[in-house]
């Protein structure tokens, strides 16, 4: 393309189908396809698909005894023991509901942020975006630890409330419970959730608003008929970006959750790191994977369904 006089040595290597006399650097379509997709495909197969398959295989082992990578007669004993423990299922339900709530709240709070950046910030949008991303320069654990300083009995919030005389004794209900977990996770996710929404909003052609205004649509209607539907993919992406990792979240809960803050992810983590019981941990993971997949499929089904009505 850029140097049409040169022959294309690569086309010889990357397979036939290149007509003789064709010139330029361009690879043929198939070669390009593999050239671009092979590395990520390899990466995903090696580091996502294979581990998941391995974990699935582990979940059918009776215990940790013997060679870990040797094939043994599969057994459903791990699934049976999970099935018999009602508290695990309850926890899976709570984890899912919490992730749902955190996902929705984070998206609701991220949307105005993204809207501001896309339509109101003007030339300073880039600067504000950097401000939004500044927390990511600090380690995730440190940011969660900071919440301990805010919420602790001798923490910032309690000290302030005592100082202004609103309370005499520090509130112990702030830290080490699920509320603290929800607060912290929403905080952590808002900037993340804002990014896909921002990307979706920035793609909206501003001419659409002019056209709508010409036709007499008020800002509210413009938002409901143009902005919201066109940013829906971003909203959905943001929601799942928050929802999926939150279902299996365990670190934040360990730090601010207290004795009653444990969720499904903690149980899985425990069986891997505290119990050396990979088969049971794997079975629990597979169940969570299945539950999340089903929910995501259901959700996308519902969204498609709505779009049919539009």
């Amino acid at each position: 393309m850029t140097a049409p006089t040169l022959p294309s040595p690569k086309s010889e290597v990357f397979g036939g189908g290149v007509p003789k006399g064709r010139r330029g650097w361009g690879l043929d379509r198939r070669a390009t396809f593999w050239f671009i997709y092979l590395p990520p495909l390899f990466w995903l197969i090696a580091f996502l698909v294979m581990p998941v398959l391995l974990m699935a295989a582990f979940s059918f082992r009776p215990d940790m005894r013997g060679d870990l990578f040797q094939i043994r007669t599969p057994t459903f004993s791990q699934y049976a023991s999970v099935a018999a423990t009602g508290s695990y299922w309850r926890l899976l339900g709570i984890s899912t509901l919490m992730a749902l709530g955190i996902g929705i709240t984070a998206v609701l709070m991220a949307y105005p942020l993204a809207y501001f950046l896309a339509f109101r910030a003007g030339t300073r949008a880039g600067f504000y975006l950097i401000l939004l991303l500044i927390p990511f320069w600090t380690s995730y654990l440190l940011r969660v630890m900071a919440w301990k300083i805010l919420l602790g009995t001798e923490g910032v919030i309690n000290s302030f409330l005592i100082y202004i005389g609103l309370i005499q004794e520090p509130l112990t209900a702030l830290l080490y419970n699920r509320t603290a977990v929800i607060l912290t996770l929403i905080y952590v996710w808002i900037p993340f959730a804002a990014l896909p929404i921002l990307a979706a909003l920035q793609r909206i052609d501003l001419i659409l608003f002019e056209a709508a205004a010409d036709l007499g649509a008020r800002p509210y209607h413009q938002f409901m008929r143009i902005t919201l539907p066109l940013s829906a993919p971003g909203i959905l992406a943001a929601f799942f970006m928050v929802f999926i990792p939150t279902v299996g979240e365990y670190v934040t809960l360990l730090l601010v959750g207290g004795s009653r803050g444990f969720l499904y992810g903690n149980i899985i983590q425990d069986f891997f790191t505290k119990a050396a019981n990979w088969p049971l941990g794997s079975a629990l993971s597979m169940i969570m994977l299945a539950a999340t997949l089903i929910l995501v499929l259901l959700a996308t089904r519902i969204i498609d369904w709505r779009q049919l009505f539009e």
Binding site: S81, T85, S87, S259, F262, N266, I267, D270, F271, K274, A275, A276, N277, L280
Partner: peptide
Amino acid sequence: TAMWAEVK
């Protein structure tokens, strides 16, 4: 360890 997971 399973007992403990069930406690939590």
